[in-house]
Simulated assay, not measured.
Amino acid sequence: MNHDDIKSCCADAYSRDIVALLLGDSYHPGGTALTRRLAGALTLTPDMRVLDVASGRGTTALLLADVHRVRVDGIDYAPANTALAQGAADAAGLAGRAVFTTGDAERLPYDDGMFDAVVCECALCTFPDKARAAAEFARVLRPGGRVGITDVTTDPDRLPPELLGLGARIACVADARPLDAYAQILARAGLHVTATERHDQAMLRMIDQIEARLNLLRITAPTRLSDAGVDLTAAPNVLRAARAAVADGTLGYALLTAVKSP
């Protein structure tokens, strides 16, 4: 599977209704509480111009537009997500503050220095060319602009077999990196990391949430699960492996902030 096929497959998976059933409105560990913490770390102020990369169905962008009164451009690889996010913005009365575009994180369709801040939640780990994406973050930031990332972390050499392969890539695990590796990727793009935080408990809570929802859907909507390609036989082993990987430090979740040199 080539570079673009991987991106298309991941984007298609995250635009499906089954993902919303399993993960709820916020597709990342920590949910909106961690998004609020990230926004606070970036010290967002009204009317800042913010780019939300891999904006999904718009949860992060709409929170920032509503609570922090910033102007947000969201970009996502899946047209279905873009349409849903724009519809949500219109319904919330935020169309003037939140605009969504279909596009590629590795080729952002924006001019140099357009944004005061860039956010990217639980998505850098899925990008095939992380260095190129980070360079794009830096390019569209103004000098002194800030980047905020929350993402899955792993020790890839210790991942169990259940957490490898395309399915694990879609689940934000197989191509995730250690926390210091993300910092190095950002640094090479000219983004100086200012703070890092571990939020591994958020990963455990999401695993518990997925397990609970799977058990419910197994009873109430088994056809929807099978139609979506969910392997109910393998799922318990995958979740068990993920929980053990968090416990031994192989798998986790983190928040990073960085600044572009003035």
Rank of each mutant, 00 (worst) to 15 (best):
M1W: 11
M1F: 14
M1R: 09
H3C: 09
H3L: 10
H3F: 10
D5S: 11
K7I: 04
K7N: 08
C10W: 07
S15M: 08
R16W: 03
I18F: 13
V19W: 01
L21Q: 10
L23P: 00
L23F: 12
D25V: 11
S26Y: 10
A33W: 07
R36G: 12
L38C: 06
L42T: 12
T45Q: 13
L51H: 02
V53C: 01
S55T: 04
S55Q: 06
R57E: 07
G58K: 04
G58N: 04
L62S: 04
L63A: 13
L64C: 04
L64R: 02
A65E: 08
Y77D: 03
A78Y: 00
P79Y: 05
A80D: 13
T82Q: 15
A89H: 06
G93W: 03
G93A: 05
A95I: 00
A95C: 00
A98I: 01
T101A: 09
A105K: 01
R107Y: 10
P109V: 06
G113F: 14
F115M: 03
D116K: 04
E121C: 15
C122R: 04
C125E: 05
C125Q: 01
A138R: 09
R139G: 00
L141C: 02
R142V: 05
G144E: 03
G145C: 07
R146Q: 14
G148F: 00
P156G: 09
D157R: 10
R158N: 13
P161M: 14
L163W: 05
L163E: 01
L164Y: 12
I170K: 01
A171E: 07
L179E: 10
Y182F: 08
A189I: 02
R198L: 10
L204M: 15
I207N: 11
Q209Y: 07
Q209G: 06
N215R: 14
L217H: 02
I219P: 01
A228V: 00
G229W: 03
L232Q: 09
A235C: 06
L239F: 11
A241P: 03
A245H: 03
A245C: 00
A245R: 00
G252D: 03
S261I: 12
